[in-house]
Computed example of a mutant assay.
Amino acid sequence: MPHPAILVDADACPVKEEIYRVAARHKAHVRVVSNSPFRVPVNERVKRVVVSDGFDAADDWIAENAGPRTVVITADILLAERCLKAGALVLRHDGKSFDAASIGSAIATRAIMEDLRAGMDGVGGGPPPFGKTDRSRFLQALDRVLVGMG
């Protein structure tokens, strides 16, 4: 059975180092996908994929390469939906997963928040700070998913 692949929506990913560590333990292949180059470890299983700076080019590459035995790391709800439809497992940076049961409400919440932000004229707080608990939850979730793919 082939090793699992991890596709990383890298532009705003705060857990890249954690992904590399867990992937190495499980011999998973990692593709770090972005519009601009990132440093990645020198490792035959880790590859950087730089796409054009076209709108959604990184998302399109990830969605087109997602499938069974693939874990996608993203906070992008619409990308998560596309990857779930392709059969991939999807984790957010805080370790919470998107799945068929949760994606519909996540999309609806996203639309509501977009409408709220549009009416606030740039006033607002954004997401809460990313903390150690989020990082720990992510490590545990990624490890659990890869063990499940065993």
Rank of each mutant, 00 (worst) to 15 (best):
A63Q: 07
D60T: 15
D60H: 10
G150S: 08
N35R: 13
A101M: 03
L142T: 06
A12V: 11
E114T: 14
S136N: 02
A88P: 12
R21K: 15
A23K: 08
A10D: 01
S36Q: 14
E81A: 14
W61R: 12
V51N: 08
C13W: 01
H3S: 15
E44S: 14
V123K: 14
T70E: 04
F98W: 02
V32F: 05
S136K: 10
Q140F: 11
R21Y: 04
A57E: 10
V33W: 10
V40Y: 12
I73H: 00
S34D: 09
L79Q: 00
P2A: 09
V123P: 15
K96P: 12
R69I: 14
K132V: 15
A141E: 00
I103G: 09
A63F: 00
D9A: 04
T70Y: 01
E114R: 07
D94V: 04
A101E: 04
G126K: 01
D11S: 05
D11R: 01
N43A: 13
A28Q: 11
A111I: 09
R69H: 10
R117H: 07
A24N: 05
A88Y: 07
T133N: 12
A86L: 08
Y20N: 00
G119E: 05
V72C: 01
W61S: 12
A58E: 08
R117V: 03
S136H: 09
P127M: 15
T74C: 02
R21E: 05
V46L: 05
W61F: 15
D94R: 08
S136V: 06
V49Y: 03
D11E: 07
P41M: 00
A12Y: 05
G104S: 11
F55S: 10
H3M: 10
P68M: 10
L79V: 00
R92A: 09
V40N: 02
A63L: 00
S136R: 08
G131W: 05
S97K: 14
L139P: 06
V42C: 10
A23R: 01
A106Q: 12
A100R: 06
F55T: 09
C83L: 01
L89W: 02
A24R: 03
V40T: 15
S105C: 13
P128T: 02
R39I: 10
T74G: 02
D59T: 01
N43V: 12
F38C: 07
K47R: 12
V72H: 14
V42M: 03
P41C: 04
R117F: 00
N65W: 01
V51E: 07
H29P: 11
S36N: 13
G124A: 02
D76L: 03
R144N: 05
K96F: 15
T133Y: 13
G148V: 02
E114L: 14
I112G: 11
G131M: 03
V46W: 04
R137M: 03
G131E: 03
V51R: 13
D76H: 00
T74P: 05
C13A: 06
P127W: 14
I6F: 02
G67W: 07
A80E: 07
L89D: 02
I107C: 14
H3I: 14
S97M: 09
A118S: 09
Y20W: 08
T70Q: 00
K85Y: 05
P127E: 11
D115W: 14
D60Q: 14
G119W: 10
R117K: 09
